[in-house]
Design a protein around this nucleic acid. Structure first.
Length: 680
DNA sequence: TTAGGGTTAG
């Protein structure tokens, strides 16, 4: 994995090739589309069921509505409107009927204040310890816990011997809430300690959910031991929760072990495992598991969302499109219109370089939320479409439906950054603080520092860094050093920034060494260049080799610098010669500013620039792509200045669009230009 | 009453 979270071209190549070989197909349409499974025959034909609450069913038999609960209490309901429920024996005042009335009131109640009134009425007329009213109190607990956890806790403490339902109700509510997840684990431990009721198969999933969210691995492991002791070791729900717990805590081996040990699995088991691999960036493994799953289960919305995430990580457009088509063809309107599913496709299309399709998916979504807006804004920013990103941001604010959150501003600021829009960036940063009352985080400062530094305002950027309320991280120092290097800042300043990086970066500081050697080279301090290089050798610092890949007919072709391993090497190098001639005829001058071997002769350097992996990939693209189709390239490092310049020229000379995804963003080279302002 | 979901700088 590269540090940006995007897959390396090698991973992409392996993934695509493995997938294509395993399926023995080369195009998207050849992926097997399984028939949707036949839904079970529910509801039955002779009665229409509508669930009023979990425990009270309204049943219509022969035109007459009946409300039933689990204790088989039958109540008549007026035929025209099921909401007007009248108990049988309306005139009777026996206690059972009273309970029924209260129960119905509970089911109809709309607010916590109404609920509290019903609760008061219950307390006045029934005994809390009366076993007949136990169910009533369970319902009150259930309803109150949904909106007022403290109230539910107080009620719970009044009950002498809560049953497992009541324990579970409270644990479930805590596990589902955002603030009280710790309480779920505390309650579970209290339940074990008191010992009057043992946790059951409903208890554990809630507890494990809380542990997973809080990364409370040891609590989760204790619960796992208890699960095995209580004989729930083969429960599908519980095992799924365990897989989720272990994957959330980064213990993928444990997660896989639980999965492997299951004698029965559901679609959720597969989904949780697939998502576990996607979350840690093991996209290939995720897709391998998905392939296995397809023979056994129908993928659902959760599955395709994870698959879309894997495709986004790999840049695997064709597989991502297949997943999208699959959902559309499956015809499940709920899944096809799901905000989360659609958002994952918007993100996937953006990260796979198809911005237009991303926009179409976004515009056709029946509903949006903050995250879907954010994905679109971030996607546009990633493609250097700052104006469009700001337009979307404007639309989002004007709709007055969603408030922007910190992530929205990361998108907006990085959009400004990619286009060098200093004033807009400053304005947005200010708006975030003053209008939307959002406290800037490290990422926001990072965008602004980078924006200022790239614009040559290095002192202003340094001022911002020293006034930040938090400690700057390596990313910020690196963007400052990058700017120092490109803007010919003083050697002293560059050294100081480099020192900060080497102090904070630990093992991965090859970037800083390379930049520093460039600083010394541009100042003609050749001795220092030598010292840095020696330091790099001594410390065993190596620069990651550049690698570019091109997807062609479902296969990924990858190239390293000076690569001669491809079967079409001869033709590729002939194309490179043609490119060279045409570039020369247009007066192209190589840009050595980022050429690695500063002490070599210029012609050698030119030779090495000419053989950058990206140039070879473009040559291969020109050779093999169908006319009119863009050449899509994935690069593991950032595109260097020279390749950027050359790519622009090639797009004009050969009238071809070249879309390059590098480690941070996309470049669209067309008609001799690129929308990004990162290069000069 | 039970499990699984999306967006974050270079």
């Amino acid at each position: 994995m590269s540090e940006s979270g995007l897959a390396s071209p090698r991973q992409i190549a392996n993934r695509i090739n493995a997938h294509v070989l395993s399926k023995n197909v080369g195009t998207t349409t050849s992926f097997p589309l399984r028939n949707p499974s036949v839904k079970n025959n529910y509801p039955p034909n002779d009665a229409a069921f509508t669930s009023l609450t979990d425990k009270l069913l309204k049943v219509c038999i022969n035109g007459e509505w009946l409300a039933l609960n689990s204790a088989s209490m039958a109540l008549t309901v007026t035929p025209s409107s099921p909401s007007h429920v009248l108990p049988i024996n309306n005139n009777s005042n026996d206690s059972l009927t009273h309970h029924r009335r209260l129960l119905l009131c509970l089911n109809e109640c709309k607010s916590i204040s109404q609920l509290k009134q019903i609760h008061a009425q219950t307390l006045r007329t029934t005994s809390i310890q009366n076993p007949d009213t136990f169910f009533l109190y369970s319902r009150i607990l259930h309803f109150s816990s949904l909106s007022d956890i403290d109230y539910a806790f107080r009620l719970f403490d009044q009950i002498q011997d809560p049953n497992s339902f009541m324990w579970n109700t409270l644990i479930r509510t805590c596990a589902r809430s955002t603030e009280s997840k710790e309480q779920a684990i505390l309650l579970y431990n209290r339940m074990l300690k008191e010992g009057s009721v043992m946790p059951d198969k409903h208890t554990f999933p809630f507890v494990l959910k809380a542990c997973a969210y809080l990364f409370a691995l040891s609590d989760g492991e204790q619960a796992h031991a208890q699960i095995l002791k209580s004989g729930f070791g083969s429960d599908v729900y519980i095992n799924n929760s365990l897989i989720h717990l272990y994957s959330s805590c980064g213990c993928l081996e444990h997660a896989q072990k639980v999965f492997d040990g299951m004698c029965e699995r559901s679609v959720v088991s597969w989904n949780v495992l697939i998502d576990a691999f996607v979350q840690v960036g093991e996209f290939d493994t995720a897709l391998r598991v998905f392939n296995e799953m397809q023979n056994l289960f129908e993928p659902d919305g959760y599955t395709v969302q994870s698959i879309a995430g894997a495709c986004a990580g790999l840049g695997a457009l064709s597989l991502g499109m297949w997943a999208h088509a699959y959902i559309l063809r499956k015809g499940d309107a709920d899944v096809a219109s799901d905000v989360l599913v659609n958002t994952s496709f918007v993100d996937m299309y953006c990260k796979c370089g198809s911005l237009e399709i991303a926009r179409q998916v976004f515009e056709r979504m029946p509903k949006h939320d903050v995250t879907s807006w954010n994905s679109m804004i971030l996607g546009l920013a990633m493609h250097g479409q700052a104006e469009a990103a700001l337009e979307y941001f404007d639309r989002m604010i004007r709709s007055e439906t969603f408030l922007p959150n910190p992530i929205t501003f990361v998108g907006v600021l990085s959009a400004c950054n990619h286009r060098g829009m200093v004033n807009e960036g400053r304005k947005c940063f200010d708006m975030m603080i003053r209008v939307f009352k959002i406290k800037p985080e490290l990422e926001h400062y990072g965008c602004l520092v980078d924006l200022l530094a790239r614009a040559g305002l290095i002192n202003e950027a340094l001022d911002l860094v020293s006034n930040m309320p938090m400690k700057p991280d390596v990313v910020i120092w690196r963007s400052l050093l990058d700017a120092c290097c490109k803007k010919n800042a003083s050697v002293e300043l560059s050294e100081e920034v480099a020192r900060q990086i080497l102090d904070s970066e630990g093992d991965d500081c090859s970037g800083a060494y390379v930049l520093l050697s460039r600083v010394y080279a541009s100042a003609n301090q050749w001795n220092d260049v030598g010292l840095v290089r020696k330091l790099m050798t001594d410390k065993g610092v190596t620069k990651e080799p550049g690698c570019s890949s091109v997807e062609m007919d479902g296969f990924a072709h990858e190239f390293f610098a000076g690569d001669t391993s491809h079967p079409q090497t001869k033709e590729i190098y002939q194309v490179l010669d043609v490119i060279e001639e045409k570039l020369e005829s247009m007066g192209y001058q190589p840009d050595f500013s980022q050429a690695p071997m500063v002490d070599e002769l210029n012609d050698r350097k030119q030779h090495s620039l000419r053989l950058h992996s990206e140039r070879i990939a473009i040559a291969f693209g020109l050779l093999s792509m169908k006319p009119g189709m863009p050449i899509r390239i994935f690069k593991n490092l950032r595109v260097c200045n020279d390749c950027h310049k050359v790519s622009k020229l090639i797009s004009r000379i050969f009238n071809v669009e070249i879309i390059v995804r590098d480690r941070t963003r996309f470049h669209h080279f067309k008609d001799g230009s690129c929308s990004c302002m990162d290069y000069w």
